[in-house]
Design a protein around this nucleic acid. Structure first.
Ligand SMILES: [Zn+2]
Ligand SMILES: [Zn+2]
Ligand SMILES: [Zn+2]
Ligand SMILES: [Zn+2]
Ligand SMILES: [Zn+2]
Ligand SMILES: [Zn+2]
Length: 212
DNA sequence: GAGTTTGAAACT
DNA sequence: CAGTTTCAAACTC
């Protein structure tokens, strides 16, 4: 198995530099778990793959080098249920170019791994993991009323025309009328709903915008 | 510092 | 899979 990344980790570059130096006390704070014993993903230290250390104010902590066996086995247990449990929350491409780039591109280089599920924060507070990570929301997010300052979730997605027609036939009894306008716009309606679908050509293929 | 709000993680 | 509970951080005062 992979060597556990401890506080004095041998694999990590030995940087003593404090991540957050506000200059006034409220800095470099770590976890303050009370019930999880720092052996569940609730604990940010455990979740980040590091042992608890000096700045932590946890109670009944078991996330220590002296408890390496339990830490590792617990970690593997959780990882077996969810292989992405300890993957980086945010995937960044380059340290420099992350913000102020893609306004409406779907791929989105820097994104949260599974997206957020914010209901009340509008993704504009650190309650939102996307916002906290400094990345915009993406199609994998299921946030409501997203106002993420780093980029809002796209309200639309692209699906292939084949997929759209298939859904139309399965759920609505088939495609009703289909018209092609100068090879530029394709329109068809679903039989039962009369819902009009408009498709456009992107990359030599028909695509339909659907709200998400 | 105490109390509230929030959404991920855990549980059923 | 969905609904509920638990949890610790973010936030407010
Ligand atoms: Zn902890
Ligand atoms: Zn800790
Ligand atoms: Zn701890
Ligand atoms: Zn969010
Ligand atoms: Zn998001
Ligand atoms: Zn969002």
């Amino acid at each position: 198995m992979v060597a556990y990344v401890g506080e004095s980790g041998q694999g990590s570059p030995k940087k003593k530099r404090h991540k957050f130096d506000n200059g006034d006390g409220t800095s470099c704070k770590r976890c303050s778990c009370k019930k999880s014993k720092c052996l569940k993903l609730y604990c940010e230290c455990f979740h980040a793959g590091v042992f608890c250390s000096e700045p932590c104010s946890c109670q009944g902590c078991l996330n220590k080098p002296s408890n390496m066996e339990t830490v590792l086995s617990t970690r593997e247990q959780i990882e077996s249920r969810n292989p992405l449990a300890f993957a980086p929350k945010v995937i960044r491409t380059e340290p420099g170019q992350e913000i102020a780039d893609d306004s409406n591109k779907t791929p989105a280089s820097a994104r949260h791994k599974r997206g957020c599920n914010c209901k009340k924060s509008s993704c504009l507070k650190k309650y939102c993991e996307c916002y906290q990570g400094g990345v915009g929301c993406s199609v994998s997010c299921r946030c409501e009323g997203c106002k993420n300052a780093f980029g809002r979730r796209e309200g639309v997605a692209l699906i292939s025309i084949e997929e759209a027609k298939r859904g139309c036939e399965e759920k609505n009894g088939g495609v009703k009328e289909e018209t092609i306008d100068n090879d530029k716009q394709l329109t068809f309606g679903c039989s039962s709903t009369f819902e009009l679908q408009e498709a456009t050509i992107v990359n030599e293929a028909w695509w339909i915008f659907v709200s998400t």
